[in-house]
Design a binder for these strands. Sequence first.
DNA 1: GAAGATTGAAAAGTCAATCTTA
DNA 2: TAAGATTGACTTTTCAATCTTC
Lengths: 142, 142
Amino acid sequence: MEAPLWKLLLKAGQRVEAAFEEELGGIGLSLSKLGVLKMLVDEGEPIPLSRLAGKLACVKSNVTQLVDRLETEGLVVRVDDPADRRSVLAAITDAGRERFLAGVEASQKAETRLFLGYSDEDRRALLELLCRLADCGCPDLK
Amino acid sequence: MEAPLWKLLLKAGQRVEAAFEEELGGIGLSLSKLGVLKMLVDEGEPIPLSRLAGKLACVKSNVTQLVDRLETEGLVVRVDDPADRRSVLAAITDAGRERFLAGVEASQKAETRLFLGYSDEDRRALLELLCRLADCGCPDLK
DNA sequence: GAAGATTGAAAAGTCAATCTTA
DNA sequence: TAAGATTGACTTTTCAATCTTC
């Protein structure tokens, strides 16, 4: 039968996505939403929507709507950019920070569950093989 | 820095998807549409929409609309199921068969392009590692 | 009542056009 | 004119409700 490599890659990706979305869905998050919260937490200060779009590798109008949803849930708020009146900044709220922590925990659960059957050796090998495809630049794999 | 495995898997999956969608988009197909055409060609006879949904691992209403689009383009037609008046069969047309062949060709082009940098050894290794994740049953990797 | 299909609404994404500000 | 954000139209998918037929 021999499933082709590309199909396996698609399936594997979908499986990873499903595992995370399922775990995150339980706490009212998705991978996209968690990505925004993570950026805001990492930066430690409000970020222009255009920079979010850049880092998240998606289109600007998508970020607009993504932030709409997050704002509706009270996880972020829009604030004016004092430096540029065209720009709008996304700022994380306390509720957002809490949700982010829950999201990190849920992610770890999903990750653990996914890779149970893999030895450290397997993980390293898979990492190396995928890195070439995902065109990540492969910086410091040691 | 060390990108985590799950992120690489997601990225790799997206990259594969993008490569195929791009190649298929040029001939008016998508992976989903090609999947339906492939099933119809493989089976060699009209198939109930519910069976399509089962094999394609998506929800019934999705198949309804997918077949709508395919029917609009003249690639499949709906026919009544003589055995069960609730059921609707999807049948491939001559245009659908032609398009399917073009789709196969486009897919091969995408596949070749994607895995240029991989030796046979790499491919085998990747296949084996992914198979465990994609839960494909791993039948005969020998 | 349960199965097959459809419909309508919603999520998540893209693109093109528009509006405000630099 | 160009940059930042939004809006509207469209695509693809899922879910819930509905309708017909078993």
